[in-house]
Amino acid sequence: MDRNVKDTIVEGITGVSVLLIIFIIVSILAVTIVGGWPNLNWTFLSEFPKDGMTKGGIFPAIVGTAVMTIIMAVAAVPFGVITAIYLAEYASEKSVIAKTIRFAVKTLAVVPSIIFGLFGLGFFIGFIGKNMDALLNGGELKWGQPNMLWASFTMALLTLPVVIVSVEEAIRTIPREMREASLALGATKWQTIKSVVLPGSVSGILTGTILAVSRGAGEVAPILFTGAAYFLSDLPKSLSDQFMSLGYHIYIMSTQSSNVDATLPIQFATTLVLLLLTFSLNAVAVTLRFKIRKRAK
């Protein structure tokens, strides 16, 4: 075959692959928007589910997702930032400790989310929670069962690598000259980190936080049995309460509902809300990250 023809065909096949992937992405977006938009209104966002969850809104699921991701971020971000500081500023690239930590972070990033769920159940609920009950509540069941706190902590472990990677990337874009300027003025290492490195990494920390929140808001598997509830007639009042979540709501409504067809509009609209939420968070994070990378050049 003529070389030029071959070139065209092969390039064409690779181009079609790109188009196919983009087509799928657009389809998911289009289907969700078309299916969900008509039912998406203020009442839907601000009301509790009604009539055995066949009508009404998703207000508690929105609140639950928001509160869970906030607690998650509060737990994950400080640990992630500090670990990133260690990797970027303290650890020498060749040290076994640094390599082990790096490998651990990568492992956390690839461990299936359901395993985090198991861990949350076995560790937070079965071990910490049960022992807390034994010590604090005289054995009465309070913390030794699925709740908001344990679900958030479980999710925090899952999103820890996201934070670490983003922050470390940002720290590494801070030019060496800045650190040297500070050290040459007689600043100690910690003073340099505190007053030069960290202020310069704010956007990276923000990116990591947003990406973590986006990931945490969308994940369902880790909270399946660590705190998510099928239906609650009240908003959670304490960390030891269960909560409703957008992702879990979608799963429940589309697979376990007694009348799947009747609730289709709710399912689509909930999916749209979740997609819009993660999507816009990602968009912000991507823009921020793009700016950080530009600075690095």
Binding site: A181, A187, G200
Partner: peptide
Amino acid sequence: RKKVGMIFQKSNPFAKSVYDNIAFGPRIN
């Protein structure tokens, strides 16, 4: 390094105000 100061090839002021740049050293002291 407090006794032996250093000026670099590429000027490297911190992304802070002029005042905060100058006050950096005294503040860390």
